[in-house]
Every structure is written in structure tokens, then in C-alpha cells.
Nucleic acid binder design. Structure first.
Length: 290
DNA sequence: CTTGAGCGG
């Protein structure tokens, strides 16, 4: 089976890579790292605003901390480019709909990213989005005391358009070295789809979902029939990254929510029939009566 | 595994 890199249980810090990786991959990885750093360096130079990054060979400014939990993944990432991301990068298209987007009008260049696992650090995010060539910074929010990731972070881009491109291309696609999809959204001001006063969400619970159903798939299952669909969310286990097999769909219109509960119940999403009910905890549109 | 751990400096 799999060989353990550290037979004596000593956590390998930033030491030699495990023998399970061959030299070729290591070299590719190192080359990739240098490319990334150079890209970053050039970007920083272009803008002439960030302090100059020291040449490659420099280690990351932040320090790793010994973590009690076993890390399910290795720290070595392989280059991976989502097909849509490739397309977006190849032909940058400035959608006219940008102004209508939630994060739209103003020049928000930052994306919020959630559902991060504890081992997904800045370096990891760099790798993920460096391919766009338009990312300027990545940050993981950590607990000040424990130093552990809070499970979300922020990614800055050179422009609002660049951020939107990344959002469209990456959101919902698979993350490298993880069994989960990107969960991206516009960062704070006037943010994407959270609670908004005066515009209540009418949410349904959708259970019995196949493991391959993503936010997008679920939303697209409903949106053609119900124009008021605002979004869909598959619930995933943060620790394992596995989908829990259920999710939620939010409607802007209560009538459509009710209709969907009747009409779509038992209908197929991907490979399995959905089980639909009203959502309880958050926004059902009907506030609980004390 | 059936009711969402989602906004910093």
C-alpha cells in the first residue's frame, strides 16, 4: 500500500519531499514556483505600489506552526488549470453584465473564498489563481490564538474584471488536491448573496443529492423553471470536504418556492431523485413564531 | 451521514 513518509511519526516540516513523488514532479513543481514568484514580482513592479518582493529563493514570510491534527493532504500541489479558466485567460472578455453583478459597479477587486481546509494556506491559493496572472495577493484568515485557518480567505486581483473572470471561471470547479469545489464570492461591501434587508430569501431544503451535484448543477436544475432562483448551496463537511448529500435553493419569490417544493420533489437532479422540503434554520421566508 | 461554521486589516 502507501508508504508512510515518516515512519517514526515525526512530522516532516518543510523537509525533503516524500519518496512517493518522483523527481520529475518535484522539478516541475519547483519550476512552477519560480514562475509564480516571477509573475508576482513583475506584477508588483508594474503597479509600483507594493513593496518590492525579494528575488526568488526567499521563503514565505509566514511561519508554519505545528498542528496537532494529521494533515490529510501533502503540501505539494500540482499545476492544474480549469478548462474554463484557461478559456477566460486566453480570451479575456469583459462582460457587459459586469455592472449588473452584485459586486459590480464599484471597483471591487477582492474575492471572498470559503470552505477552505486547514492546510490550504496562502501558498496554495497562490497556486490556484496564479494561472490567471491577474492575482495580486491571497490571504487566509487565521485565528490569532491558534494560528489555524478560519476556513476562509481573500484573494485580490488587479482589476474588478479580473476578479469577475476568476469568479466565473473557478467558482464551483474542483480545487486542486481536494475533493471539493471552490466557493467564491465577492468580498464584503455590498457582497453577493447574503442576507439583505427587505429582500427575504425563500429557501427550500433539497436532500438525497448525488455526490457529484455541485452548487451550479443544483441551481441550474431549478433556475430554468423558476426565474427567481437566487442561488444554491450544497452542504459539505468542512473537515472531509465531502458533500453531505443535501443542500439548499434560495428563491426570491415565495410563490415559486412553494411551487418548486411541489413540482420538483422527486424530480431527478443528476442521477438521483430529490427530496424537497422547507428549510428550517435560516431563511424559510416564514420567521419562526416564538 | 438529510436543515448551511458565510467576510479581514
Amino acid at each position: 500500500m502507501m508508504q508512510q513518509p515518516s515512519p517514526n511519526g515525526v512530522p516532516q516540516q518543510m523537509a525533503a519531499p516524500p519518496p512517493t513523488y518522483d523527481q520529475q514532479q518535484q522539478n516541475q513543481y519547483l519550476q512552477y514556483q519560480q514562475q509564480l514568484q516571477q509573475q508576482q514580482w513583475m506584477l508588483a513592479n508594474q503597479q509600483q505600489q507594493q513593496q518590492q518582493q525579494p528575488p526568488p529563493q526567499q521563503q514565505q514570510p509566514y511561519q508554519y506552526q505545528a498542528q496537532p491534527q494529521a494533515q490529510p493532504q501533502q503540501m505539494y500541489y500540482q499545476q492544474q488549470q480549469p478548462p474554463q479558466a484557461a478559456a477566460a485567460a486566453a480570451q479575456p472578455q469583459y462582460s457587459a453584465a459586469a455592472a449588473a453583478q452584485p459586486g459590480g459597479a464599484d471597483g471591487v477587486c477582492t474575492l471572498w473564498i470559503g470552505d477552505l481546509q486547514v492546510w490550504m494556506d496562502e501558498q496554495y491559493l497562490m497556486n490556484c489563481f496564479a494561472y490567471t496572472g491577474e492575482m495580486t495577493n491571497a490571504k487566509v484568515i487565521r485565528n490569532k490564538q491558534s494560528g489555524q485557518s478560519e476556513g476562509y480567505g481573500f484573494i485580490d486581483f488587479v482589476s474588478h474584471a479580473a476578479a469577475e473572470r476568476a469568479l466565473q471561471a473557478y467558482n464551483g470547479t474542483g480545487m486542486p488536491n481536494a475533493e471539493q469545489n471552490y466557493r467564491l464570492n465577492w468580498a464584503s461591501p455590498g457582497a453577493g448573496e447574503k442576507r439583505s434587508d427587505g429582500t427575504p430569501d425563500f429557501t427550500i431544503f433539497v436532500g438525497d443529492l448525488a455526490p457529484d451535484v455541485t452548487d451550479q448543477v443544483l441551481q441550474q436544475t431549478f433556475s430554468p423553471h423558476y426565474p427567481s432562483v437566487k442561488g444554491a448551496k450544497i452542504v459539505t463537511d468542512m473537515m472531509t470536504g465531502r458533500a453531505k448529500g443535501y443542500g439548499f435553493v434560495r428563491f426570491g419569490d415565495e410563490g415559486e418556492q412553494v411551487r418548486a417544493m411541489h413540482e420538483m420533489n422527486g424530480k431527478y437532479c443528476s442521477t438521483r431523485p430529490m427530496r424537497i422540503g422547507p428549510a428550517n434554520k435560516k431563511n424559510t421566508g416564514k420567521p419562526a413564531i416564538p
